[in-house]
Amino acid sequence: MIILIIVFIIMLMIDLPSVIRNGKKKILIAYGLIFTFSFTICLLLALEINIKSPLMFVDEFYKNILHFSY
């Protein structure tokens, strides 16, 4: 857990200065969104909260609704 946080802080230190320096708002928002998204997912993974993977949704969709699999 702590390692995860340290790693993400270092990632911030690496990318944030260059994102702020060229200052386009679009990049800032995009970077923020992606960073928080990946941070939350990694956090959930680190806390062993299992998240249903999108492929499993597809799997159920094919198997139950379409009954269309080998």
């Binding site: 390692i3 340290i6 790693v7 270092i10 990632m11 200065p17 260059s18």
Partner: peptide
């Protein structure tokens, strides 16, 4: 600056490789 960034990247790699 990207030299400083490279240094940080290496730091991260080492932290990860050795602790984990």
């Amino acid at each position: 600056l990207n030299k400083f960034k490279k240094f940080l990247f290496l730091l991260m790699v080492f932290i990860l490789v050795f602790t984990a």
